[in-house]
Design a protein around this nucleic acid. Structure first.
Lengths: 122, 122
DNA sequence: CAGAATCCATTCGGATACTG
DNA sequence: CAGTATCCGAATGGATTCTG
């Protein structure tokens, strides 16, 4: 979107036409609204590269199925890269892709801001 | 665009030391993961002050119940302020609170980034 | 106009159990 | 260790209807 897309009182009637529409969120926005998705990005970005177990430990309460699903979704969306090492015991490392890095840079400030205000009194 | 998009790998690496736990997402994170929540913040931030009908028009497809719910949640969370005018026909204007402004500043770059990469990716 | 209330299909995610 | 598969209750959000 461009800076000149400024909204004025007159822009009201053109609301349904010209104006930037944030509605059709891409698949990424959709993914980010899933449980722990944003946190996963940030955890990987903070501990990269990081193993599955570490991520799981970071969120003590998440179920493996949920975390696994989130990891797969973000990997398929091109935000995470999964490196599998043929060792015994198996080792898998997650890291951010270039896109993931960009996203993480945008997400970390958000998370920090949320933390700073603490558990708000609603 | 802004220059602060230059955190680079250094910022990420530096954070590798601390083990901040992002798990306990505050109520705000929870709200943001709801449908259209992030977009609502950004739409209000862009068109402020904005009437209910305008917001609804911006998202052509959202149902009034969903939008209304989101608006209430964000208002109660202190991100939005609702001003009701005793006129006929009734007029209600939504605006960002101070907190909402801060949040919007963090969210807009995210939305722009998502838009820029488009839905064509993968 | 700006919603609130209700109903309900769909989705989401936790628990559990099981593999390579 | 690093997941996947399955089951199922909980939460979500759309459609519809109604109101000040």
């Amino acid at each position: 979107m461009s800076e000149n897309a400024r909204a004025t009182a007159e822009g009201v009637d053109a609301a349904s036409e010209d104006r930037t529409c944030y509605c059709p969120l891409g698949g990424v926005m959709d993914l980010l609204s899933r449980n722990y998705a944003i946190q996963v990005i940030c955890v990987v970005g903070t501990l990269r590269p990081v193993r599955y177990g570490e991520i799981e430990a970071t969120f003590g309460e998440v179920s493996s199925s949920t975390l696994s699903t989130r990891l797969n979704e973000l990997t398929e969306a091109g935000m995470l890269a999964r490196e599998r090492y043929a060792e015994i015991p198996p080792r898998v490392e997650y890291d951010l892709t270039t896109d993931g890095e960009e996203l993480c840079e945008l997400l970390l400030p958000l998370l920090r801001w949320v933390e700073d205000r603490g558990p708000s009194e609603q």
